[in-house]
Design a binder for these strands. Structure first.
Lengths: 253, 253
DNA sequence: TAAGATTTGTTCGTATGTATC
DNA sequence: GGATACATACGAACAAATCTT
């Protein structure tokens, strides 16, 4: 029912996995919302006719997917918990760990998605949101004086994009932009993926972002889109030389 | 190390979760590849100084994320297993279950991503791939004679897009397109999300796809992009009236 | 086919930890 | 601080799957 169309001869499903599926069904049937309480361990044991260990393994499966959260103590138990953005990004990052994702792959996506986001945001932001964006841009207002500062500036600039994503009313667009910002951030942190210093590019990047905020404030969608497109081209050239294959490690949590 | 920058006061981490993290670290340190064998249960117990139940719960966590697979019997055990495309899509779908994702949200994304995919595919496909695409288009060569057939045609048409994604050399682009095709397919299956029948639109859609294959074969990127863009607009209008909020159920597996 | 070896799968009893009242 | 209600963890035993001979 809630399963993908029909696995041709399942490879084998252990009982905990089955129980996890049953619990999902149980939740869906009752249309439980975030925060709703699930039966406790003892009740689960009775409900599905399995032992405590099996129930616990099933719970861990659901927990790992972010579908439930568990608290101990009186009034504790397991609860429906919506999958957080953070967890969703981590789980997807694990997938790309095994793919051969390059920086230019990411930019091929960014070049089309970020301008669309910018365009759709024009004229929809509240003054405090505009202010917050301007605040982020200020964080890299001056030339970096050390590699560490340059790295921090780079990360702050990615936070600018993540913030734009946050303001979007389209969850899919928001997720994709936020996800790419995270991958690039991780890359910056773990791989020193920032340039041998190029002051001109930094200044131009900052100019772009300030102009963009202005266009967003003015509600000029076309201009916002154009600026973002140009900004992406600049950023791409900034990172292009980095041949680095992106994902070469597990992403924990 | 492999964790996100630094959780400010983690809410509490159960022992199985810790062990799961330790196992991830263990794998990363050794740079184990897909198929590599992990220590068996007994060794894990010794290695981390926890009980069997705890080890098993940790394993279930990793399994739920698609990071390991487990087999019984001699020569069995747990193995590093790359996260499959299917699982990644399912896990992400669970996130959007809790978001308020609309059909037009999906199309906002499709309208920019699918043309980019089409453009990048022009001139890169082998004859058998071209043939396979043509084969898919043939599956909705004639007017549907029943709602069921119309649904099947709609699904086949989404398979066309999924197939294009499969041919892409950009894993990120490929994933996004495939993911959207899956959501729309689920929607078609579970919610009868296909139109009250509009023969003209069907014919035009098919025409688009045939022209697209031709442009891809000829290596005409601009034309492929333009056709896809137009195709997306048509498909959008086809589904537009469906106000349906997309995700209102768990996606199992 | 059958038996044995190996490894995960499942259960049960018990004890401990944790948060609420 | 004690009682209560819950999850958490351990250990020993047994079941099932699968490979080898």
């Amino acid at each position: 029912m809630t399963d993908t169309p029909a696995k041709p001869s399942s490879p084998r499903r252990s009982r905990p996995v089955k129980v996890a599926d049953q619990i999902k069904d149980w939740v869906v049937e009752r249309d439980l919302k975030q925060g709703a309480k699930l039966p406790n361990e003892a009740e689960m044991i009775a409900l599905f006719g399995v032992s405590k260990g099996t129930v616990r393994e099933a719970m861990r499966i659901l927990e790992a997917q972010g579908l439930i959260v568990t608290r101990t103590g009186p009034g504790g138990g397991s609860f429906v918990g919506e999958v957080s953005l953070e967890r969703a990004k981590s789980l997807l990052a694990n997938y790309f760990y095994f793919q051969d994702l390059s920086v230019s792959d990411i930019y091929q996506m960014r070049k089309v998605v970020e301008p669309e986001l910018a365009a759709s945001l024009a004229g929809t932001l509240k003054p405090d949101q505009i202010a917050e964006l301007r605040g982020l841009v200020q964080q890299y207002d001056r030339p970096a004086e050390s590699p560490e500062e340059e790295r921090d500036q780079h990360i702050a600039s990615l936070r600018f994009h993540a913030k734009l994503a946050e303001y979007s009313r389209n969850p899919l667009l928001a997720f994709m932009v936020s996800f790419m910002a995270r991958i690039l951030t991780d890359l910056t942190v773990y791989r020193r993926l920032y340039e041998p210093h190029n002051e001109e590019l930094r200044v131009r990047g900052q100019r772009h972002q300030l102009d963009l905020v202005e266009a967003l404030e003015a509600g000029d969608a076309d201009r916002a889109e154009a600026i973002m497109r140009s900004h992406m081209l600049g950023a791409e050239s900034l990172m292009q030389r980095q041949e680095a294959r992106v994902m070469r490690r597990f992403i924990a949590e």
